[in-house]
Design a protein around this nucleic acid. Structure first.
Length: 329
DNA sequence: TGTATTTGACCGAG
DNA sequence: CTCGGTCAAATACA
């Protein structure tokens, strides 16, 4: 297990290095390719070792019932149990993005220059109460087929409104949990395409699903969606960086020490890990959390589906960008 | 016929 | 007064 942990650290370090040298490497595509190859090999190695470890664990006497031994969902379950990891992600990204927001993001959104508009936008973002319980993530829209559908996140939602938002090209859609009445579930989400990247949805979650607290609740998330759409995951009370390559390191710079500690629990059945859905503190394991696990699924399952998963993660939203023709009503 | 979506009207925080 | 968020009637769909 120590080997896996150190491999993960190594991979993250490589990514960090790449992140730092990326501006210079654009002139050296071959070095970039080599670097990417190296990183993907390291993580592929991690994946293989992890699978073996999980299989070993599956042969122990007391596998958790929900754990699918040897399958991709094992890793998923493990990561979902890594409550601490989600908390770390939330904390770090919230800080990171909050810093960025006031300084740069608004200017970029407005194309820069318009100080008045910037002020008014800032005012508006400060406006509403209960901003603290909002969690914003960005997910990639499907690039083939129906790109209009909002990203699947494992919950069932009912649309109850759509609104044109000042300064945004695309309308914002409002959803609430399908089981709002049945389970008095207060969970809501807002979905909006990014102005400068129609292939990316910004999804803001508000409230927590109470309908998942019961084992019989109908909105227990189905298995992960067929197309991994995770791009970035974050928690922020206000806004996120535009989908430039700069947003990538936000999740790469995760402090994984705690999650590596959790990793040991796989081989230590006495340290029984809680399925993340049953965490009593639903605030921290909110609906944005599954994105972390989906991202990890994507990374760790890259072997079986050729090379597309790293590609999905690293692909620039501006690639093969074409006018989606999204009408704004 | 039941359920989901659309959309104009309304509410209320700021 | 503005504008984001929600309501609810009308409409679409299975």
């Amino acid at each position: 297990m120590e080997e896996i942990a150190s491999l993960i650290f190594e991979g993250c370090k490589l990514v960090n290095d790449l992140e730092k040298t990326l501006p210079n490497m654009t002139r050296e595509p071959h070095a970039l390719i080599n670097s990417c190859d190296h990183i993907s090999k390291v993580f592929a190695d991690v994946r293989d070792r992890l699978r073996m470890a999980v299989q070993d664990y599956g042969h122990h006497d007391q596998a958790p019932p929900a754990m699918e031994v040897g399958g991709s969902s094992s890793v998923s379950e493990w990561l979902r149990s890594s409550h601490a990891m989600n908390m770390v992600v939330h904390e770090q990204l919230a800080q990171h993005q909050q810093q960025r927001f006031d300084q740069t993001i608004v200017g970029q959104e407005l194309g820069g220059g318009n100080a008045e508009a910037m002020d008014s936008l800032l005012q508006r973002t400060r406006r509403r109460k209960h901003e603290a319980d909002r969690r914003t993530i960005r997910v990639a829209a499907p690039r083939m087929g129906n790109t209009e559908v909002p990203p699947e996140d494992g919950y069932t939602w009912r649309k109850y409104g759509q609104k044109e938002i000042l300064g945004s090209r695309y309308p914002r859609a409002y959803y609430r949990c399908t089981h709002q009445k049945l389970y008095n579930c207060p969970a809501k989400k807002q979905v909006q395409r990014l102005d400068n990247d129609p292939y990316t949805f910004e999804v803001t979650y508000r409230g927590d699903h109470t309908c998942t607290m019961s084992a019989t609740a109908p909105s227990m998330p189905p298995p992960p969606p067929p197309l991994p759409e995770a791009m970035t995951t974050s928690s922020t009370p206000t806004y996120l960086a535009p989908p430039t390559s700069q947003s990538l390191p936000q999740w790469l710079s995760i402090d994984i020490k705690k999650s590596v500690e959790d990793l040991y629990s796989i081989t230590h059945p006495t340290m029984h890990v809680q399925p993340f859905r049953s965490q009593p503190n639903a605030n921290e394991a909110g609906p944005s959390s599954p994105r972390v696990t989906d991202l990890a699924d994507t990374m760790f399952n890259s072997g079986s589906s050729s090379n597309n998963s790293m590609e999905l993660i690293f692909s620039s939203p501006y690639e093969e960008k074409k006018d989606g023709g999204e009408n704004t009503n």
